[in-house]
Design a protein around this nucleic acid. Structure first.
Lengths: 209, 209, 209, 209
DNA sequence: AAATAACCGAGACGGTACGTCATGTCTTGTA
DNA sequence: TACAAGACATGACGTACCGTCTCGGTTATTT
C-alpha cells in the first residue's frame, strides 16, 4: 500500500514477518504521541514493537521514512462522502481532516517530516506520493461532483483549471493546518462554516468576475 | 527586542558580550542554510560564531529556542506599506511574506520549530510572541486601513471582528506557507493575484451575505 | 585473570571483542608514560587503542578502574626465584619490585590510584585483590622457604606469624616505594644490600630477643 | 612560613587580605575531607572560603600547589620530644606521624600530590621543601640525640652516615605510610612497638657487623 | 530429508553530538 | 591595587543514539 524502502524479495529464504510491519508502525505512532518526533529513537520503537533494530532497518532507511509511513496510514480514512452540496462536502472533508490533525501522532509527525523534506528531495517525493496527492484528489473529486450538480461551471482551459485546483488545495489544507498547528485553536463546526462560506463566496464570485 | 531565556543582569561581574548574541544568531542562520535543522549542532554554531559552547548555553536553553530567535529576526522586516487599496496591500504583504519563506534559513527552521512546539508549551509561547503575533498585527492593521478607505465596513460586534481576523490570518498565512513549503511551488505574482482575488471576493461577498 | 567490571555474558548478541581489552590496557600504559595520570583522558586512550569511547566505558567504570587493571598487569612478572638464601631472595625481589616501579607507567598510575582509593572502597578492594595481595604472597613464600632452609624458626602462634608477615610486608614495600617515588632516589644494588642487611638483622635479632 | 607562588608585593595599592590565606587553606582541607583530591575544585574552595576565584589564583598557581601548602601545615606539629631513649623517641615520632596520616585531609592530599609530583619537578621540590625535608630532620635529630646518649656510635665517614640516615628515613616513613594508606590498617602502639624493635635491632646489629 | 538462504533476537561495535563541569583568564564595579 | 562577581574560551566528561556488524537460531523454499 504505502511504498517501502524497496522490494528485494529474492526467491528462497525465510519471508519477512508480516506482523512486524504493523507492530512497528503502531509502535512508531505510540512513540510519537508520548515523546514527539525529535526525541523518538529507532531503538525505542524497536523495543516497543518487540523487534530487533536490524529488523527495522531492513524495512526502512531511517527515522523520516518510518514516520512518513506511520503518519500516512492515518490519512487512509480521508474520503469525500456525498453530502448533497459543495458546501456540505467541503465542511465534511475539512472536519475529517481536522479530526486527523487533532491526533497527537499526526501533529508531531507531520510537521516534522515536512520540515525535514525541505533538505531531502526523496523524502519530499515520499510525502507527496503518500499524503499530499491523496488529499489533492479530494479537491478534484469535489469539484467534479459540484460541476455535475451544476454548482460550478465546467472549465474550458484545463491548465487554468489545474491552477485553480492547486490554489484551492493550498487554501484549504493551509488554513486548516495553520489553524490547528500554528494558531493551536480548534477547528470546530463554527470555524469550518465560516471558512467554507469565505471560500465558496470567493470561488463563485471569482468565477463570475 | 525578542525575549531571551535568562534574566537580564543582577549586578557585579563581567557583563555578557553584546556582540556574541548577534554572531550566534547569524551563525545559526548560516548553519540552517547549509545543513538544515536536523543536522544543525550547537557545537557547530558555536564554532561558526567564534564562541564557546558554554556561552551559547548560557543564553539559550537549547536548539529550539535558539532557532526561534534566529528565524524570528527574519520577520522583523515584515511591514505593511500603504499601496492605496486593500487588494494591493494584501498582495504586497503576501509577496513580502513569501520572500522571507523562500530563504532557506526560514524554510529549514520555521517548520521544525513549529513541529517541536507541539510537545513544548514554552516553545509555542515563544513562537507566538516573536513570530505569529507580529504577523497577525498586519492583518489588523490592514483591516483598519481598509475601513478608513471605506473598502470594508466597520464591525459592530468586536468578538465577531476578532474571529474574522483570526480566520483571515489563518487563511493567508496557511495558504502561503502551504504553497511555499508543502506544495513547494513558487509564490509569484500570478499566484498572489489569484489568491488575493479569491480572498477579497470571499470577504466582501460574505460581508454582504 | 584480573577481575573486570562487568558480568561476563548473558546469552545472544555479538560477543565482546577479545582484542579490544588488550589494546585498551596497552594504550592506557602508553598514555600513562606520555602524559601521566592526571592528564590522561579516556577519550585519548580510546583513540590510541583504535576503539570507541563507548567500548571502553562498557568494560570499565572509569579512569581509576582502568588504570588499576593496566598497572596490575605490570606486577604479573613479580615472582620469587630461589636464590639459595633468604638474603639473596629478598634482594632479588626488592630489585624486581624496584624495576617495575622504575617504569613511568607504574610510577604515574600506582600512587594516583592509591590516593583515589582513600575515598573509594570498591577501588581499594580492587587494588588489594589485583596488586597488594599478590605482593604479600611473596613474603609468605619467602618465609616458608627460609624456614625450610632453617634460616628462620618455625612460628608456633599463627596469629603472631601473620602479624609479623604484615609488618615485614609493610616495611619492604613501604621502604622501596618511598625510596623510589617520594625520595626519588634509585633503588640500586648498594641500597638494596644495605636495606636487606638492616631487615634481616632486625628479624633475626628480634626473633632471638 | 611555607613558600608561596611568589612575593610580587609592589608598593602602592590595596594590600592582600591576611585572613584570606588562612580561610583558603582551611577550606581546602575541608574540601579534601569531604570530596577527596580528584573531585576537589578550586571554584568550590573559593566559595567555601568566601573568596573570589581570582583571589585564589593570585596566590597559588593551581590545585597541586594549594594542596601541598594545605597539607604541609598539618606536618607543622611534628616534633621530636626527648623521651629518654632512642626507642621511645622513635615510637613517639611514629605515632605522631601516624596520627597526622589518620586525618582524612592528609590521606587524600598527600598521596595525590606525590603522584602528581612524578611528572612535575617543581611540585616535587615544593613537597620536598615543605614536607619531606622536615621529616628527615627528625631522623638526624634523633640520631644526634642517641649518639649523645651513647646509644649509637659516632660515625666517622660523613657520606656513609648520610646514606644510612636516608635509608632509615625511607624505612620509617615508607613503612608507616604503607601501613596506613595501602594496607589501611591502624598504626597503633602494638604495631609501633614491633616496628621499632625490628628497626633498632637491625640498626644496632648492622652497626656492629 | 537435506541444503540453502534470508530471516529473526540480541547486543557489541565505531562514531558523533549531547549538555554539564572545571580550568585558568578576562572584565566589570566597588572599596 | 585588591577584591567579589561572573562571563569567557577551552576541553574532558559520561551518556545517548546512530547505523552497522556479528553472533546463535529460526523458518521457508528448493533440491
Amino acid at each position: 500500500m504505502h511504498s517501502r524502502t524497496s522490494a528485494p524479495r529474492a526467491t528462497g529464504g525465510r519471508p519477512r514477518s508480516a506482523t512486524a510491519d504493523a507492530a512497528i508502525l503502531a509502535a512508531t505512532r505510540a512513540a510519537l504521541v508520548e515523546v514527539g518526533w525529535s526525541k523518538l529513537t529507532l531503538g525505542d520503537v524497536a523495543t516497543r514493537a518487540g523487534v530487533a533494530k536490524t529488523t527495522l532497518y531492513r524495512r526502512w532507511a531511517g527515522k523520516n521514512e518510518l514516520v512518513v509511513d506511520a503518519v500516512a496510514a492515518l490519512f487512509d480514512e480521508l474520503e469525500l462522502p456525498d453530502r448533497g452540496s459543495l458546501a456540505a462536502d467541503i465542511e465534511g472533508v475539512v472536519l475529517q481532516f481536522a479530526a486527523i490533525l487533532a491526533r497527537p501522532e499526526a501533529k508531531s509527525g507531520l510537521m516534522a517530516v515536512v520540515a525535514e523534506s525541505i533538505h531531502d528531495d526523496a523524502l519530499r517525493d515520499r510525502i507527496r506520493a503518500s499524503i499530499v496527492e491523496r488529499q489533492k484528489l479530494l479537491v478534484l473529486e469535489g469539484r467534479a461532483r459540484a460541476q455535475q450538480r451544476g454548482e460550478l461551471p465546467e472549465e474550458s482551459d484545463p491548465e487554468a483549471a489545474s491552477r485553480t485546483a492547486d490554489l484551492i488545495f493550498d487554501v484549504i489544507a493551509g488554513a486548516v493546518v495553520h489553524r490547528a498547528l500554528v494558531s493551536a485553536e480548534p477547528v470546530d463546526t463554527d470555524w469550518t462554516r465560516s471558512f467554507t462560506r469565505l471560500l465558496l463566496n470567493g470561488l463563485t464570485a471569482s468565477a463570475t468576475a
